[in-house]
């Protein structure tokens, strides 16, 4: 008894502290690295904007940029101060929740991009969710009917679509569904500032469809491949031999094991979407972050560039962490400590 108690006392506290909690540890560690990454990104972007010739003042004044007007505006915008000082002012502002004012129009950056973050997020989440559902569904079906006509058609089509850049897909959709052949949907997605995107569902159709068409093949092919692996495994054959109905085998035996690698691809899909919206927003004139970024870069509007890049980088980091967490959650064996 005594030895047993001693043993528990000796081992107890250390084992409690060392009890593996991989998800919590991962979130904490990756968040800290993420914050450091954000700071580095902001320094890089700031340095990059400093080394380019020209500045926000010349971008605003254009052909009225006499040396006097240029200088007056540079002073007004604080561009004549040392670069390190400008960065420090910006950084301390951000730490106080103040992203500064646009150099182009003097409005607070937060009000300029606040609504746009929502607009882009709606686009990304809708396209990601719909694309994932379609991709996973088609992947499961194709794997279940492997080597059928259905499977071959899907595989070849997805390979073909993969080769199409989003601007081609968008142009084709616009020609067919908006501008020339049939006028079902708006060709451009313009809605009044301040109205949420879901109050304009028609405006969302073509941009979301473009992104869905671009991302579905990746999810589909990954899902199909890992589903085929799962269907060839011993436990699936065992289940089939036991006489489990085919749909049950697919959904409850094969799918849970096949989904883990697909989750990584879905995560990558969301990451791609965060960048892919730039092109689609530009083409559809959709008032999102990507369109704002294009404009801010040509205006050399550093506070706005910084804020948008930070939002996109934070999204990247968050999606990465989330993907790993979900992948861990669905594959229990990877949660065990390695010995």
């Amino acid at each position: 008894m005594t030895t047993a108690t001693e043993a528990t006392e000796r081992v107890g506290p250390t084992s409690k502290a060392a009890r593996p909690h991989p998800i919590r540890d991962l979130v904490i560690k990756r968040s800290l690295i993420g914050i450091l990454t954000l700071v580095l990104v902001s320094i890089l972007i700031f340095a990059a904007t400093q080394t380019l010739p020209g500045n926000a003042a010349s971008a605003v004044l254009l052909n009225t940029a006499t040396p006097q007007r240029l200088h007056a505006l540079e002073v007004q915008l604080g561009l004549t101060r040392p670069a390190v000082e400008q960065y420090w002012t910006w950084l301390t502002g951000v730490l106080h929740g103040n992203f500064g004012k646009s150099l182009a129009n003097g409005q607070p950056v937060s009000t300029l991009i606040g609504g746009r973050i929502l607009n882009s997020l709606v686009l990304v989440v809708l396209a990601g969710a719909i694309g994932t559902l379609i991709g996973v569904g088609l992947g499961v079906l194709a794997a279940a009917r492997r080597d059928s006509v259905f499977d071959h058609v899907l595989s070849v089509t997805s390979l073909g679509v993969t080769a199409l850049p989003e601007f081609v897909v968008a142009v084709v959709l616009v020609i067919f569904f908006a501008a020339v052949v049939i006028h079902w949907f708006p060709a451009v997605s313009v809605f009044a500032p301040g109205t949420p995107p879901w109050s304009n569902p028609r405006e969302l159709v073509l941009p979301v469809a473009t992104l869905v068409i671009v991302v579905v093949p990746y999810v589909f092919r990954m899902m199909r491949a890992s589903m085929i692996d799962a269907l060839e495994s011993d436990y699936v054959q065992m289940a089939q031999l036991k006489g489990v109905p085919k749909w049950r085998v697919l959904l409850f035996h094969a799918l849970p094991n096949a989904i883990a690698p697909t989750i990584q691809v879905i995560g990558l899909t969301f990451l791609y979407l965060a960048g892919g919206v730039v092109v689609v927003e530009y083409l559809f004139n959709y008032p999102g972050l990507g369109q704002a970024l294009v404009g801010a870069v040509s205006d050399r509007d550093i506070p706005q560039i910084q804020a948008i890049v930070l939002v996109l980088a934070a999204f990247y980091i968050a999606v990465n962490i989330l993907t790993d967490v979900i992948a861990l959650a669905v594959s229990p064996r990877r949660r065990l400590p390695r010995s």
């Binding site: 908006a178 501008a179 060709a187 530009y282 083409l283």
Partner: peptide
Amino acid sequence: ITDYSDQTSQVNALLAGQ
């Protein structure tokens, strides 16, 4: 007055009656 970023979307909007 709506700002358009390029001519393609602008012409599409005109043709689609937007």
